[in-house]
Amino acid sequence: MLTLKQSRRLQSLIIGALAWAIAAVIFFPIFWMVLTSLKTEIDAFATPPQFIFTPTLENYLHINERSDYFAFAWNSVLISVSATLLCMCLAVPAAYSMAFFETRHTKRTLLWMLSTKMLPPVGVLVPIYLLAKQFGLLDSRLALIIIYTLINLPIIVWMVYTYFKDIPVDILEAARLDGATTWQEIVRVLLPIARGGLASTMLLSLILCWNEAFWSLNLTSSAAAPLTALVASYSSPEGLFWAKLSAVSTLACAPILIFGWISQKQLVRGLSFGAVK
């Protein structure tokens, strides 16, 4: 007969083994990508796939060979950061007034904002494409910055709103009593308190912008193309350089993966529009 403690331990062992097995299967493609990026092109294409090989950093050293990797990476950074900052500038005041000066329209406005996310991008692909063409914004970073700001705005407003909602109104009242203007109240009191929440909101926005692959594929060709487009260019048959593709992909995903790991708890809140804590 097993004692209670022993059966608990056995249970934990079985559950642990099962969980590790599932995690290994789900994570395998990413692991395999990193492994392939350390192979030579010949090893990468070998059958059967090789687990043991002499690792090489060659692919990373020659990352610029096939295309100008750093130009694409720079576009990704510039577009994601600009769109995120712009989005925060719009979202913080909106969330501030909705969280602390609630009117009977607030809830409806919030739901309406969410509903704009329901508009599938293909529904407006043609006009946006033609407008971009008209204004000479095809293949420009500005077009992507504007679009990313707008498509992420609802999520960001929601997320900032839920963070602000947790802050006691009394603290702001106190600042107001001391004669602070609205501007001072936001910058000197509210933002420092909500620092953590705002940081994870920005992280979420960066992740969404970095990985966006509908508008970046349709509106850019070379000059403004971010990493998503660079990776997509490897899908053509002439791009059978798997080791290099893996190296490029690994570099493109690594920063976001690390951001994601750091902020997983907060992401839940943002991605569920505050409904799950």
Binding site: I22, A23, A24, I26, F27, P29, I30, W32, M33, T36, I207, W210, N211, A213, L217, L227, T228, A229, V231, A232, Y234, S235, W242, L245, S246, S249, A252, C253, I256, L257, F259, G260, W261, Q264
Partner: peptide, 20 residues
Amino acid sequence: LLISPFFIMPTVSALLWKNL
């Protein structure tokens, strides 16, 4: 490990599955 694939950009995951 379990939540990682969510952070991989769509073009990368598509090509990863396609080629590897």
